[in-house]
């Protein structure tokens, strides 16, 4: 997979929007690892929740030119940057400012991707709409992730796949349990140790009988 060009971005904008880092690239690696499976499913619609700079969803769109990609972010500057990143890399795309995926119709997306604010913080730090919102995850670093987990069964198409990045402190087993109660199976796509952080990308899907 190609890494999206980012020369269009003014570095000063990264004071307000999360700058692509190891976690962003691990998600791109996860999609690359799953490429054959994804190609066989020929997704029509892909959503990245909390897209920040837009590099992950743009990388997806570059690999899947026959997929329409949408991103959301609570931070308007991130919405603008995502849109520019996609346009600069010639990906057909739209960006919407919203809370997670709350304003979409049901059973729509073939693919949903989420790199959450996963850092363990006080609850008070979590829930803003500026750059803090890109990393502050509250208790267990899971407060935002857990809200999205409740939306996934509705927003994902019946045969859709949800890719989620977590770190060890988020207690991935608890997330797997929550999703299992919603009827989802999981696979570990990729894991990597970055400095002192154990990052993991899981994918969740339903078995269709």
């Amino acid at each position: 997979m190609e890494t999206p060009h980012q020369n269009h971005i003014d570095k000063a904008d990264f004071d307000h929007v999360y700058e692509p880092a190891e976690d962003s690239f691990l998600l791109i690696d996860a999609i690359e690892k799953d490429l054959e499976n994804l190609r066989s499913r020929n997704p029509a619609l892909c959503l990245e929740v909390g897209s920040g700079s837009g590099v992950v969803v743009t990388a997806f769109g570059m690999a899947f030119p026959s997929t329409f990609c949408i991103s959301t972010d609570i931070n308007f500057r991130a919405c603008i940057m995502s849109k520019k990143t996609a346009e600069y890399n010639k990906v057909i795309f739209d960006s919407v400012r919203m809370d997670l995926a709350s304003s979409f119709a049901d059973n729509i997306f073939d693919i949903i991707i989420f790199n959450p604010p996963y850092v363990v913080t006080d609850s008070e730090e979590c829930g803003g709409d500026d750059i803090t919102a890109s990393w502050a995850g509250g208790v267990k670093g899971r407060e935002v992730t857990d809200r999205l987990l409740e939306m996934i069964p509705k927003k994902l198409a019946k045969d859709g796949t949800f890719y989620l990045l977590l770190i060890e402190e988020n207690i991935p087993d608890e997330v797997i349990n929550i999703m299992s109660n919603h009827g989802f199976r999981y696979k570990t796509v990729v894991r990597r140790k970055v400095r002192n952080e154990q990052q993991i990308v899981l994918k969740f899907y339903r078995i269709i009988y």
Binding site: F76, K83, S95, D129
Partner: peptide
């Protein structure tokens, strides 16, 4: 605004 709907409540 700038092609981006704001659905925040």
């Amino acid at each position: 605004s700038k092609g981006i709907p704001n659905m925040l409540l």
